[in-house]
């Protein structure tokens, strides 16, 4: 896209795409039985947010691009969260020998 031409793709197209990705992530979050897949669903949701931020950044904030900086922070945190999540998953797997969310029920009243 050359900077002086209006983009042929409307902003809303990106927003709809982000919405699809976000809702898929939410569905996966609720329904996945494998804990690793739940982590993947969360990554999908974060990517949806990033698409939103990047689209707004280019279309509405083209000079200061704060959205791009925000996205970089989100990417950083997502990486940290994934590392911590997998460490916790690993220590849980050593204790329970399963990654089935339905069997993580030691703490139910």
């Amino acid at each position: 896209m050359s900077p002086d031409l209006p983009s042929p793709i409307p902003l809303q197209a990106y927003l709809v795409l982000a919405a699809i990705l976000f809702c898929t992530g939410v569905w996966g979050l609720i329904n996945s039985r494998n804990a690793v897949r739940v982590l993947m669903s969360i990554e999908l949701m974060l990517n949806a947010v990033n698409i939103n931020l990047m689209a707004f950044s280019t279309y509405l904030d083209g000079q200061l691009i704060r959205g791009q900086v925000f996205t970089i922070f989100v990417i950083t945190v997502a990486a940290a969260e994934a590392a911590v999540g997998l460490a916790i998953l690993l220590s849980l797997y050593r204790n329970r020998e399963t990654v089935d969310m339905e069997r993580f029920n030691l703490l139910r009243w």
Binding site: G25, L29, A35, M45, L46, R96
Partner: peptide, 20 residues
């Protein structure tokens, strides 16, 4: 470990919602 995993999954989902 189980408490940590539950906290992490719910907390990350809440963070994603906040970000949206």
């Amino acid at each position: 470990s189980e408490a940590a995993l539950k906290y992490l999954l719910v907390g990350s989902a809440a963070a994603a919602v906040f970000l949206y």
